[in-house]
Design a protein around this nucleic acid. Structure first.
Lengths: 213, 213
DNA sequence: TGTCATAAGTTCTTTTTTTCACAACAGTTA
DNA sequence: TAACTGTTGTGAAAAAAAGAACTTATGACA
């Protein structure tokens, strides 16, 4: 099992590039095309593919459809992925309304908060009390949660949702969450992100920091 | 000039950890303390510091104040960093309202959109027409922009803001922006982020993907 | 003031990631 | 069918990053 995060990020990029190429009518691609589209080298593409035993045709490259299918499968995107959002502040609400997930096979089932003023149990995507979290995710089989609560409550809430059985947390709170055993935590920290950008801008970097997401 | 993004991310983490330690009353820290707080090894801390010629005291560790000062300087955070947000959709508006930036020395000067219904020139943080972008950023000396427009317009808008003199773009649009020469682009792609999480959850990863932000 | 303990700073080693280079192969053409 | 072209797949080399181990400085204390 490949545990190299950069490599997985590249897979996502390949998939997005392939979808674009497909919509342009491409049926086959060569490693070089894909490399250009994803901003890497062709060796890298072939090496990545070889890690996942993705194979093409020695003369004719890769079939776009097969590739998308294969990569989606590796990324677990063949089935609809159910997620919930915890914290209905600015970010949480924006993510609720964000319509970009559906195309990617990601379905936001519900939002959660502790503030009764935010509850809306009848909405298309309901907003429920945090007390209902455990029951909801267990009955729905949700394993992924997006955590968008204020930093002061982040640690506390993370413990609640982990104890409810959540296995993956996308954390927007600007603190370092220490996830439990076999709970994966990935953080998006806007301040860190901007600090990086500022550093590289000041450095006059031509080399763009390559890490997507 | 250090061009290793992971290293810069660690610097941000060190800074955050130091601020926490400072608020707890610490005056000095050892590489080991900082390593624990940031989730790395002490060698790594010392190695990172040596890359930036950050030096401590062979017996007494590092002075917290000096360290914060030094790292902030490296990250360009001694002066207030001015940013603008382009695109007043869900994400853009949420970022406008997000209050976490101020503590980090980041000041959102304005938002921009093409939809006149969104304009609000008199708000504390005004929302202005995109036509005013060039004049605004040039008169205010803004170099960093957050791009939160729909994917279809992302490329077009990125060209506009780059031509206006923007040097760093934090891109929320789910496409791969090809930045121009000496323009740094850093992307936050929620779908990619979630795909990663799903992969590592499915893989039953104990090793948390370490990349913050 | 000399010895000792400790933590920084540096060097060396190991591991990981990327790139290079080329053999194997499939389609194409004569 | 035989030569040729161009792309994959992989093994080896190179580069980059992380980690371990060692050396040296420094404050504390007798």
């Amino acid at each position: 099992m490949v545990m190299n995060r950069k490599c997985i990020i590249r897979l996502s990029r390949y998939k997005n590039a392939l979808k674009r190429l497909k919509s342009l009518g491409f049926v086959k691609v060569f490693s070089g095309n894909l490399a250009d589209a994803a901003g890497v080298t062709s060796s890298q593409v072939r090496k990545d593919f070889s890690l996942f035993a993705i194979t093409g045709n020695r003369r004719g490259g890769y079939r776009v459809d097969e590739l998308i299918e294969r990569i989606s499968h590796i990324l677990g995107k063949n089935e609809l992925q159910k997620v919930v959002i915890v914290g209905m502040g600015n970010i949480g609400k924006a993510l609720m309304r964000y319509r970009g997930f559906e195309a990617g096979g990601i379905k936001v089932l519900a939002g959660f908060d502790i503030d009764p003023a935010k509850y809306n149990k009848l909405a298309e995507i309901p907003i429920l009390p945090l007390e209902d979290f455990r029951e909801f995710v267990q009955s729905q089989g949700v394993r992924i949660a997006i955590l968008a609560v204020p930093d002061v409550s982040a640690h506390h809430v993370s413990e609640i949702i982990i104890s409810a059985g959540i296995k993956g947390i996308l954390n927007f709170a600007p603190i370092q969450l220490r996830g439990a055993e076999n709970v994966v935590v990935s953080s998006i920290n806007l301040e860190v992100e901007l600090e990086n950008l500022i550093y590289f801008v000041n450095a006059g970097a031509k080399a763009e920091p390559e890490i997507e997401a």
